[in-house]
Amino acid sequence: MPRGVIRKRTNTTRRPVPLPPTERARKVHSQFKTRRTLRWRVVDIVVASVIGVAAGLIFWIWNLFYAPVTAPLEVVAPGAQALLYGVWLFAGVLGGLIIRKPGAALYTELVAAIVSALVGTQWGGALTILSGLAQGLGAEIVFALFLYGNYRAYVAVLAGAGAGLGMAVNDLITWYPAMDFSFKAIYGVSAVISGALIAGLLSWLLARALARTGALSRFAAGREVAARA
């Protein structure tokens, strides 16, 4: 072979392309099998509170606008106004999806209810908090049924539906005890559908979008998305 000619490399073992340090860190990080613990860390409880507070403010804004928005539905079929009531349920599902600890859904929904009650709602403090309790419990039971280990989209949808069921039971007892059966049936079915779609599916999409911003890097919910990316 004449000098000066570089022989083409023939063996096929490729050298790894050097990754930028952040990418390398991400790969290494995702390989850690973090042991799943159900104990609340400080960051869990603070971020759950923060989500609850932000959701409480959103509830408060929604409290001001919901009546004119849902009134047309009520005219079409009494009880169908609950089709949009899922907005009140997203806090619990979102909290459960992000924190992934027992009680997270209940706690987040309850904090949101307390905040919106403190800022002022038309239902009176204690009754607003009671609704939060019933709605959060509905979502919490679903997460518990999956042993706090499954946070896929269908679980989120089921948790939303559970929250909707909790809302329907509470509302029908507290606010509409005297309505006839068809109203109660329409209200209940609408609440469950609304919970599944607005609170369940939308919260799942929201949690994924939040993870993509990197804001959830201290949570399993955030690391999962980072590992997939």
Partner: peptide, 12 residues
């Protein structure tokens, strides 16, 4: 929401 969560992590 992102800002609130980041601030919460810092507070924690």
């Amino acid at each position: 929401l992102v800002l609130a969560i980041r601030r919460g992590e810092r507070m924690a």
